[in-house]
């Protein structure tokens, strides 16, 4: 059993004397094993979640076994609650016997929250620090790994068009989830977010009027088909699929946070193999190479905006 202590013994100590302070007593530990929340002890919960993920992997081929546990656990309970179930085992029963339940769970587990020009500072830094290098290439390949419904890829297409680079660019935008890939191909985004996106666009260094890029229709904003012409949307699983091309730039933002550290390392290996020397890697604003084992293979181009360049 995992003993819940303030600091695990395996923690790298920041200074001498750093140690578990709120040390559990014998009775504490017994109490933890017995203190059920929703009728669950942490141990039993972990067992049932592992069984569920193992079942999903072996029956459907989706491998969530090395996803970050705390987030996964939250989302599994959300599904259980909204379906009026009581236990993780009950969910397992439903998921394994009813593919439509698997589909719903898949949507729950792949968090598809995204936005156009999310973190405008990232795009400012990209224009300033990456675009000049891209200008020197005859052909540019960019991979958006975990692109969700495509907002990020369209943002990049807009940026490249404004920099006069789009004609020689190809954007590969991939996601594990087929449903979001289908949506991404439509290029229609909710009208009620256009105000937010317009602000993001301007703060991201946009040089035109954002409304030039879409047509407002009754059910959404349809983005200009010319933006789609060099984007290839396809389903791709970062955990189980291989690299498909050498790319000059890989952007993988707010995807790896859902993976545990071992899985992150594996995906970083895939990225490393898919980049040439001096290829660029962009991560989400609170993601870092620091804890991945690949820190020394890259140099920071913009540390704050998490843009790196492969140096070995």
């Amino acid at each position: 059993m995992v003993v819940p202590v303030g600091l695990g013994a395996a923690d790298p100590a920041p200074a001498a004397g750093a140690e578990a302070i709120v040390t559990p007593t014998v009775t504490d530990i017994a109490a933890a094993a017995e203190a059920p929340v929703n009728g669950y002890s942490p141990d039993l919960e972990r067992i049932e979640i592992q069984l569920l993920l193992e079942g999903i992997y072996r029956h459907y081929g989706f491998d969530f076994r090395a996803y970050a546990y705390a987030s996964l656990r939250r989302r599994i309970w959300k599904r259980i609650d909204s379906d009026g179930l009581k236990t993780i085992s009950a969910l397992q029963d439903r998921v394994l016997h009813d593919p439509s339940m698997m589909e719903r769970l898949l949507l729950d587990l792949s968090i598809n929250v995204t936005a156009m020009f999310r973190d405008p500072g990232f795009y400012v830094a990209f224009r300033r620090d990456v675009v000049p290098a891209l200008r020197t290439y005859p052909f540019i390949r960019i991979w958006h790994a975990g692109c969700s419904t495509g907002e990020e890829a369209y943002s990049m297409a807009i940026l490249l068009e404004e920099e006069d680079l789009y004609d020689r660019a190809r954007i590969y935008a991939t996601d594990i989830n087929e449903v979001v890939i289908r949506k991404a191909k439509e290029g229609i985004f909710p009208l009620d977010r256009m105000q937010e996106y317009t602000q993001n666009y301007l703060r991201a260094g946009g040089t035109r009027s954002f409304s030039e890029y879409y047509t407002a229709m009754y059910d959404g904003a349809l983005f200009a088909p010319r933006l789609m012409r060099n984007i290839v949307f396809s389903q791709h699983n970062l955990v189980t699929d291989r690299s498909f091309a050498e790319c000059n730039v890989i952007l993988c933002r707010n995807v790896l946070i859902y993976f545990d550290r071992t899985l992150q390392q594996r995906v970083h290996k895939l990225f490393h193999e898919s980049l040439p020397i001096y290829g660029y890697l962009g991560l989400g604003s609170k993601e870092s190479l620091r804890f991945t084992g690949f820190e020394d293979d890259y140099e920071a181009v913009d540390r704050r905006e998490k843009i790196y360049r492969k140096i070995k």
């Binding site: 303030g6 600091l7 790298p12 920041p14 750093a18 946070i257 992150q264 609170k286 870092s288």
Partner: peptide, 23 residues
């Protein structure tokens, strides 16, 4: 930042616009 180890002697602050969890 994501996957930062938890250590004594630090004051940690949740970043804006993300949920923070311990894993």
């Amino acid at each position: 930042e994501d996957k930062q180890p938890i250590m004594g002697g630090y004051v940690y602050l949740a970043p804006p616009d993300y949920h923070l969890l311990v894993d």
